[in-house]
Design a protein around this nucleic acid. Structure first.
Ligand SMILES: [Mn+2]
Ligand SMILES: [Mn+2]
Ligand SMILES: [Zn+2]
Ligand SMILES: [Zn+2]
Lengths: 138, 138
DNA sequence: CAATAGATTAGAATGATTTTAAAGAAGAAA
DNA sequence: TTTCTTCTTTAAAATCATTCTAATCTATTG
């Protein structure tokens, strides 16, 4: 039996499959993150949003949850600025525009951009991932 | 008259051209940074290295200097990890291998890799720079 | 030499993130 | 359900990189 007729069944199942207990906080955050279009959030942003949606969660739990979701492959971390991390609900192969003035991240589909002639990595290493950040300004 | 017969004349001139007073600290750091091959350093690394070379400099001055050198176009900042900044003495157009296990950065010459079909940036914005990070592991 | 603008520094402050340890909630067993 | 156990949440403290403050130096110019 799955949970198709229980409330929030989609996110509930997502958490179950990730091996994470469906707690009130995780369910609420998962709804904010996964029931809408793909998004890029900082911990602070998500905390503000959760609070605004009447979900009581501490900032520590926001960090725990974002790191757990990332560890479970439900999200990924994008590093564009020193001192702040963005978390991305889009886990498909893609890249980013980073608006340096507003701090906004925008997806570039994986097939809309591509790297050619990636040189061989040093002996004994393998390529884990290629990140392309197109930095833009007004 | 230039300073071609004064000690450390090369870095001395670099600082002068950048409009930075050639102080003992800046001269010492410039020698470590520019008299060898291109390099990637964190503030803490450079501080340790300076101290080991008998150059007395505070960590605050290391940060000031790296930021001033970067502002003057003598270096650039590379963001690969949350919570730590790397500074690069190679200011030519190029990209990086980032070794996730060791924290080392390796240059990929600009002509050894290239992006194709970079999509148009959103209306009202222009591309400032494209950063490619090839993340590698053992 | 002054005089002055600019530079260095110790130490405090900041800001993002993590850790601690205590209290609370979820799953399993009975 | 009740009980037991394991996870989870949280407030508060701790950490870590970086920046700021404001007092003390130093390079440059007259
Ligand atoms: Mn992390
Ligand atoms: Mn900076
Ligand atoms: Zn994305
Ligand atoms: Zn480089």
């Amino acid at each position: 039996m799955n949970s198709s007729n229980r409330p929030f069944s989609q996110v509930h199942d997502i958490l179950r499959k990730a091996g994470l207990r469906p707690t009130r906080q995780r369910l609420g955050l998962a709804r904010l993150l996964f029931e809408n279009d793909d998004r890029h959030v900082t911990a602070e942003q998500l905390h503000t949003e959760a609070t605004g949606a009447n979900l009581r969660v501490s900032l520590a739990t926001i960090y725990n949850t974002l790191n757990q979701f990332t560890g479970a492959g439900l999200m990924r971390e994008v590093v564009v600025e020193p001192g702040r991390s963005y978390f991305d609900t889009n886990t498909t192969d893609h890249h980013h525009f980073f608006h340096e003035d507003t701090g906004r991240l925008l997806d570039i589909p994986g097939d809309a951009i591509s790297v050619s002639k990636v040189p061989e990595p040093p002996t004994g290493t393998h390529v884990e991932r290629v990140d392309i950040i197109v930095r833009i300004r007004e």
